[in-house]
Write a protein that binds this DNA or RNA. Structure first.
Length: 296
DNA sequence: GATTAATGCTAAA
DNA sequence: TTAGCCTTAATCT
């Protein structure tokens, strides 16, 4: 259940532990057998993330394209060398995809029997990775990978020159509510339901404000804040949008309850103005906002 | 033990 | 517009 920060961490992880290695690729579940055969025995050259899309590039110009969707996940395991190379490290928050089975595992003796429906398994010399539950798992060409990228908007975690202007332009050229546009991966890639709610609150923006009614300065600041808070997410391995002054005494890092301003806080008093945090359905997803802080 | 909802999206209808 | 992915944790009975 990742937003862009998790996928960025996964790309970093694959680069750290598998880059330059010949990988054994299989599909224990059987639904990716043909694709796995295309990748089996090839060398991983680069792992990249754009928004919520992960691209594992192999040296024969075939790319493993993965999108985790709502509940896809990668599990990793391996020996001390593998764990030492990991940018993710020790087990962390339950529910994240970035979990090691057992950090104190004995010496690596190959991957375990697949548990559940493992769509694809990558095995290197020092460790393994299992993918399950993904929306997209495909072996594609470099050209096809490019066309996937072409359908995506700017990624605030890449924040390349011109990205900020592209976002502002993309937002202002549409009349849909800003809360809907933030979830549109063509407008901005990598934002999900948590960051959507939290950055709108942080910028005190009315979720129903049409994109074309957002002032240019506010749109730019929204991009900047999204980039900053998502970069924190990459560092922390979780979404924390509140400053330490909102955390319970001595709670560093904060509990889940204290890490957000409005996400999943419906019915509770706003941390800033004490108005009751609201919830509504927008395009099939739950939208959380503070009617006091985020009024038109 | 069963049911539901979830940090999402694609493709079929 | 809806099914599907086929997991996980929290909430029900």
């Amino acid at each position: 259940m990742p937003e862009g920060h998790s996928v960025r961490r996964l790309a970093q992880q694959f680069g750290d532990v598998f880059s330059g290695e010949t990988l054994a690729v299989s599909s224990p579940q059987g639904r990716f057998t043909a694709g796995a055969a295309l990748l089996d025995g090839q060398v991983l050259t680069e792992a990249r993330a754009h928004g919520k899309h992960l691209f594992l590039h192999f040296d024969h110009a075939v790319v493993l394209h993965v999108h985790l969707g709502l509940y896809g996940a990668w599990d990793f395991g391996g020996d001390a060398t593998f764990r030492g190379a990991s940018s993710i490290g020790a087990p962390r928050k339950i529910g994240e995809s970035e979990v090691f089975g057992d950090a104190r595992a004995p010496a690596y003796a190959g991957p375990p029997e697949p548990k559940g429906a493992v769509r694809v398994r990558l095995v290197g010399r020092h460790g393994w990775a299992d993918l399950r539950g993904a929306t997209t798992c495909a072996a594609i060409t470099e050209a096809e990978a490019q066309s996937v990228l072409a359908r995506l908007g700017p990624d605030p975690l890449r924040n390349q020159p011109g990205d900020r202007a592209r976002f502002v332009q993309g937002l202002q050229s549409r009349k849909a509510p800003i809360a809907a546009l933030l979830m549109d991966q063509k407008v901005i890639a990598g934002v999900g339901n948590v960051y959507r709610a939290e950055v709108l609150f942080r910028q005190r923006l009315d979720p129903w404000l049409p994109g074309n009614a957002v002032p240019e300065e506010a749109a730019g600041l929204l991009w900047d804040d999204t980039a900053a808070v998502m970069a924190d997410g990459v560092r922390d391995g979780r979404i924390i949008t509140t400053p330490a002054s909102y955390w319970a005494e001595g709670a560093v890092p904060p509990s889940a309850d204290d890490a957000h301003y409005v996400y999943k806080r419906e019915g509770l008093p706003c941390r800033v103005c004490a108005a009751t945090v609201g919830i509504t359905d927008l395009l099939g997803r739950k939208l959380y906002w503070c009617p006091g802080c985020q009024s038109p």
